[in-house]
Amino acid sequence: MALVRKDLRLELRTRETIVAMVLFAIVMLAILQFGFGTRDDDLTRFVGGLMWVTLAFTAVLGVGRSYVAEREQRVLDGLLVSPVPRTVMLGAKAIAIFLYMTAVEIVVIPLVGVFFVKGPYWDAIGWIAIAAVLANICIALSGTLFSGLALFTRARDLILPVLFLPALVPVVIAGAGATHAVAGGPHDMSEWRGYCLFLLAYAILFALVSVATYDAVFDD
């Protein structure tokens, strides 16, 4: 928990990452609103896609900053020479990213309802939030792994989105599907459950891949 506490302390002091992520998400939703919703068209059937594309690009922004303090302040060697297992470092970064994404979603999920949904939405918020928690685990685990990989490359700012966005495609599909199943009309809980199970399986897969490879990422 010391590493998570450190990340949160740094974020509370600098307020760089979460504020930037929330603003980016709001701006992106506004652009989508202007792009799609200037007339009275009902965008409810697109709401899952609009929400999760916004969240995916916001995740890229947040994950890209996950090792900024270590890199710019040249602290990484201090962590690496300590006896802490690399997987614990992975877990700590993943928890921080999870919390950042949760903060973004607290703003984004209601805003999507305001911007795009004409039918019933607010009674579906709880189900969307559950899917978002599962998606966040996927984003946090895959994001930590890819940001760790990109950390040791020169073109890290370019490489990270190239590696990370394709890994987010299944998360966007499942997140959008789960949202679509419950937003704007009668809830299709069977469909929602299927997408949530997919997200859970994807999270487990990335947890296993991360644990198996993270030592090699930092030690080789």
Partner: peptide, 16 residues
């Protein structure tokens, strides 16, 4: 556990 490493950089966070 038994290694103490002093590098060119202080290896501390500037904002802590």
């Amino acid at each position: 556990r038994g290694i103490g490493y002093l590098a060119h950089d202080p290896l501390v966070y500037l904002d802590l």
